[in-house]
Design a protein around this nucleic acid. Structure first.
Length: 314
DNA sequence: AAACCGCCCAACCGCAGCGTC
DNA sequence: GGACGCTGCGGTTGGGCGGTT
């Protein structure tokens, strides 16, 4: 424990912030804004280092901060995002308006601790492929590059079909970012992803295949029921979330390629806008990244898009 | 009531990345 | 190119609080 690296001044205060300090910081930031944090302490009359001021503002004082318990939807979002990007807390926080990376990190660490303390689930069955990280009854399917810790199902859970479909709105992740080396060779029109299709067809969506995780890159296989046949390469840059309600049908051909039919474009965009203003999703972005509709590939062909299911209850 | 324990979470720490000179 | 300063990020710490004994 040395001196705080940014706080070389001798009379820099540390520890918890007092209400008076908070007031000073709020007053200064709301009237002057923040440009250079290193100047803030002196100008605001605080005996803190700029770094501490920045942290206090971002994590606690800024007006759009959201407090209180995480909602179930937020929990799902965090878990699913973590399954994709790992411990990139800032990235995860960017998808949860009003939540800070620190808060999410704390929540996650507490959550992991809880899971670890409840090792009541029986050991997973042995029938998984060597590359698989999905285990029996596991609701979360993680890419192999991600935390093994959370791959393990540490708590007893109800049967898969009950949990996944008990929620009115299970979620899917959608990544419009093409994977490296794929997009150039597999131009696919965006509307292949979101067919303007018929109404939800529960028969097409087979509960036994509900763990379909990631689909569309070339040769990517899937997880069905109890077995993971393949896990996709590193998935990054997840941009948005689509609730399962918006997936109207799912089908799989003989080669294991999976087609997902979603809501119409306008409906999807409306939903996205209704969720979080910070979502980066835009249809134009999708179209652009997927090749701008120059060429229509075979229906079973591939894009860089990625879809994942994740638990509706934890 | 007091001591103990475990957890939460605000804050700190160190480092990487970036821009500027 | 490298030194420097600033910002942002992820990992870690420890004070405080609530629950338990």
């Amino acid at each position: 424990m040395g001196h705080h690296s940014c706080c070389n001044q001798q009379k820099v205060k540390r520890g918890l912030w007092s209400p008076e300090e908070d007031e000073k910081l709020i007053r200064y930031i709301t009237t002057h804004g923040y440009g250079c944090w290193s100047e803030v302490p002196e100008k605001a009359g605080l005996q803190r280092c700029g770094k501490s001021c920045r942290l206090r503002w971002i994590n606690y004082l800024r007006p759009d901060i959201r407090r209180g318990r995480f909602t179930p939807e937020e929990e799902k979002l965090i878990i699913s995002l973590h399954s994709v990007v790992g411990n990139r807390w800032a990235h995860i926080a960017s998808h949860l308006p009003g939540r800070t990376d620190n808060e999410i990190k704390n929540y996650w660490n507490s959550w992991i601790k809880k899971k670890i303390r409840k090792p009541s689930a029986p050991p997973p069955p042995t029938t998984t492929t060597p590359s698989s990280t999905t285990e029996h009854n596991s609701q979360i399917t993680y890419a192999s590059s991600q935390l093994d810790l959370v791959n393990q199902d540490l708590t007893p859970r109800p049967p898969v079909h009950e949990t996944l479909f008990s929620s009115p709105c299970p979620l899917f992740m959608f990544d419009p970012t093409p994977l490296d080396g794929i997009a150039d060779h597999h131009n696919v029109r965006a509307d292949q992803l979101f067919h303007e299709s018929a109404s939800l067809n529960n028969e097409t969506w087979n509960p036994n295949q509900h763990q379909v995780q990631a689909v569309l890159p070339p040769s990517t296989s899937f997880t069905t029921g109890m077995e993971t046949h393949y896990l996709p390469p590193l998935i990054e840059n997840m941009e948005s979330m689509v609730p399962m309600d918006h997936v109207q049908s799912c089908s799989m051909d003989e080669e294991g390629e999976i087609a997902l039919d979603c809501l119409q474009r306008q409906e999807l965009n409306e939903w996205v806008e209704s969720q979080h203003s910070s979502f980066l999703f835009s249809w134009e972005n999708v179209e652009g990244q997927l090749g701008g509709g120059e060429e229509i590939a075979p229906a079973s062909s591939n894009t860089g898009a990625t879809l994942s299911s994740f638990p509706s209850s934890l």
